[in-house]
């Protein structure tokens, strides 16, 4: 990684990198890339991977209480998909010259982040539906564009992930539909979930363009293809009619169709609240990370045993006496 910083501007390697980008070609692991590009990709892919892994927790919270065996099976499969995405993305990140153990350590130390959205609690079964519908829905809006991102391994991982996320989004909407058409208590549960998840779902798409520190450079490098605000608008435009279909109230009094723009206008996001969560002061930041670290520490003896056993097998060392 260090040697790339010694390449002067305008060098053959740098112009090759620029030429690949402008031709819409992918940057591959063996290609030269600027140090900052590599650093940005590691940060972004790691954050995405960590989000998938931490994201097992809020939905996993309802596995043991799912209200039918079919819902239980679907939920286990969905949470398993998230873990699979994490694995996939860590592998993509490792192509940039960092190990999964290092990434794990950075997460545990709080030096790399995961999506702020997973710092909210799942307080009812409807939250499982709302996460699929809104959180996965918002994520896909962003991730579909990332299938065309400039770093090859990330773009390719995103193709598969988007297929599964799209399925997750539909299952979440299907849960919400069932609840919205159900009993009084079920409809109230669905509305309460929408009330709590709506604004965090808009905020999770990232700070507004004028505050986003990474946007310009990331657009230039073809890492990002649309700004946070563009993606957010598209998500709102897609989701508001779905909420209306469900007969649920979107908790935003400023929400109005703007004929001139051809888009939904929506109210101001409370960015102070968002930054508080990012800074670690959301409802579940401590629990989520503590759960992750605890699982890792509790499993240390298992990983050590696996390594010890493998070493004995490799070296034909004497076994434990019975």
């Amino acid at each position: 990684m260090e040697q790339s910083s010694t390449v002067p501007n305008g060098s053959a390697r740098e112009s090759h990198f620029a030429a690949l980008l402008s031709a819409g070609e992918k940057i591959e692991p063996r290609d030269w890339m600027p140090v900052a590009y590599r650093r940005t990709m590691i940060r972004q892919i790691a954050q995405h991977a960590h989000s998938e892994v931490i994201g097992q927790q809020p939905e996993g919270n309802w596995i043991t209480r799912a209200p039918s065996l079919a819902r239980k099976a679907i939920l286990v499969a969905k949470v398993q998909d998230e873990a699979g995405h994490g694995l996939y993305l860590y592998s993509a990140c490792e192509t940039l010259g960092i190990s999964r153990d290092e990434l794990n350590e950075l997460l545990h130390q709080g030096r790399q982040k995961y999506s702020s959205i997973f710092n909210y609690p799942t307080l009812s079964w409807a939250d499982v539906g709302a996460i699929g519908w809104l959180v996965d829905g918002a994520a896909i809006t962003n991730q579909v564009t990332l299938t065309r991102t400039s770093y090859g391994p990330y773009a390719r991982a995103m193709v598969r992930i988007c297929k599964e996320e799209s399925f997750h989004q539909r299952q979440g909407f299907e849960i919400m539909t069932t609840l919205a058409q159900g009993s009084e208590a079920q409809r109230a549960m669905a509305q309460d979930a929408l009330d709590r998840w709506w604004w965090p779902s808009l905020a999770m798409l990232g700070p507004p363009d004028e505050q986003s520190t990474h946007t310009d450079q990331s657009l230039q490098w073809g890492i990002k293809l649309e700004t946070n605000d563009e993606i957010r608008q598209r998500f709102v435009d897609q989701t508001v009619p779905q909420a209306h279909f469900l007969g649920l109230h979107v908790p935003d009094e400023a929400l109005a169709w703007n004929e001139g723009r051809g888009h939904w206008d929506f109210g101001d996001i409370d960015w102070d609240a968002f930054w508080e969560v990012v800074r670690g002061n959301g409802p579940c930041n401590h629990e989520r990370l503590a759960h992750k670290v605890q699982a890792w520490q509790d499993g240390a003896w298992v990983r050590e045993a696996g390594l010890a056993y493998a070493a004995k097998q490799a070296h034909g060392a004497p076994r434990n006496s019975a």
């Binding site: 892994v53 097992q56 996993g60 499969a77 949470v79 398993q80 873990a83 699982a295 990983r303």
Partner: peptide, 28 residues
């Protein structure tokens, strides 16, 4: 099902979910 996200490695989170789903499918 209660073990998902608590396992010693990410691969084992995936594995325990798999085994859980097999038993759940048989149960159903």
């Amino acid at each position: 099902g209660a073990l998902v996200s608590t396992m010693p490695e990410l691969e084992l989170d995936i594995a325990v979910a798999n085994v859980c789903l097999d038993h759940l499918g048989q149960a159903r």
